[in-house]
Amino acid sequence: MSDLSNAANLSTIEAHLRSEDVNVWFGERHVLRDVSLTFPVNQVTALIGPSGCGKSTFLRTLNRMHELIPSAGFAGRILLDGEDIYEPGVDPTNVRLKIGMVFQKPNPFPTMSIKENVLSGLKLSGRRGYDATEIVETSLRRASIWNEVKDRLGDPATSLSGGQQQRLCIARSLAMNPEVILMDEPCSALDPGSTRRIEETIEELSETMTIVIVTHNMQQAQRVSHQTAFFLAEDGNPGGVVEFGKTEDVFNNPIDLRTNDYVNGHFG
């Protein structure tokens, strides 16, 4: 499938995160087949495709969140800076420190204040000796929410609006200083204004980190991403990548007919 892709255009850029022949099962059900994608440094990659095509599942294999589902099976390799994160000696919690994640629904810790939420990752992973004030400000600034919350850092995180909560969740992830951030439809629960702000944040963040974003919104994929992978699962077969390449190519000159149909809204 991936030989149809435009990936050749990207091979000159340094690979940061790479998947090789990733296959996923839930129990006996084979849901993803041979997904090989390259996520270069400081690039935003959008994963698009209809519901149930396995794009969110694939995203979760990238930081080993996938294996929290008891029936989950996995084959293939995920390489971060050339090292396979599924090697037996690798601690999954360390993988997740390097590869942060933002979820579909804003999920700040309800018992914690705004400030505590930003610092929660550091506390949860048992880190010590950090400058809390500095980390809180830097992380909130990078998530472009600092100005809105700087005077109310002690307020409960749940007092924020949905869009603000989502940016707080991004800040919480950034506080861990990850190399990669995975975003699973981060705007699907938000209004257009909040969506635009998150997209701006993604753009700013991409200057310093590698971002992988699952989105249902084709315009969003075009606005924020440098490269796009189109996932599809046909007729009960496991999902896979139909086409992968520069975003403008995938949307404007797709090689595969199915990609063309999907990006032009003919199905999905």
């Binding site: 949860l124 992973s125 048992g126």
Partner: peptide, 18 residues
């Protein structure tokens, strides 16, 4: 909310600290 628990896991928390 399982997502809140997943958030802790995604932040590198162990099961006991979660």
């Amino acid at each position: 909310d399982r997502d809140v628990i997943n958030a802790a896991t995604a932040l590198g928390a162990s099961r006991s600290s979660t």
